Simulated assay, not measured.
Amino acid sequence: MATPGTDPLTREVVELIGSVVARYHDEYERAAAEHSLTGAQARVLGLLSLEPLPMRRIAHQLKCEPSNITGIVDRLEARGLVERRPDPGDRRVKLAAATEEGRGTARRLRESLDFAREPLAELSAEERTALRDLLRRMLGEQPES
Results as ranks from 00 to 15, higher is better:
44 V>G: 03
33 A>I: 01
60 H>F: 13
1 M>P: 13
79 R>Q: 15
26 D>E: 11
49 S>M: 03
36 S>F: 05
98 A>G: 05
5 G>C: 13
49 S>F: 00
82 V>D: 14
80 G>F: 11
123 L>H: 09
56 R>F: 06
86 P>C: 09
138 M>A: 12
57 R>H: 14
112 S>D: 10
54 P>Y: 12
29 E>L: 06
30 R>T: 10
31 A>S: 08
45 L>S: 03
114 D>W: 04
88 P>L: 06
106 A>P: 00
84 R>H: 10
130 A>R: 13
134 L>H: 01
61 Q>M: 10
126 E>N: 08
115 F>A: 10
33 A>Y: 06
20 V>Q: 06
71 G>W: 06
74 D>T: 10
23 R>G: 11
63 K>G: 14
37 L>S: 03
78 A>M: 10
110 R>P: 01
70 T>D: 15
38 T>H: 07
137 R>Y: 08
47 L>Y: 09
132 R>P: 01
67 S>D: 12
9 L>V: 14
90 D>W: 07
99 T>Y: 01
139 L>I: 01
80 G>V: 13
28 Y>N: 03
136 R>V: 03
91 R>C: 06
69 I>S: 07
31 A>F: 00
107 R>A: 02
88 P>N: 05
103 R>L: 02
100 E>K: 05
35 H>T: 00
1 M>Q: 13
18 G>W: 09
22 A>C: 00
113 L>R: 04
134 L>P: 01
144 E>M: 05
38 T>R: 02
89 G>M: 15
57 R>G: 12
49 S>D: 02
91 R>T: 09
68 N>W: 05
94 K>Y: 12
82 V>K: 13
2 A>L: 13
30 R>K: 08
84 R>P: 09
91 R>F: 13
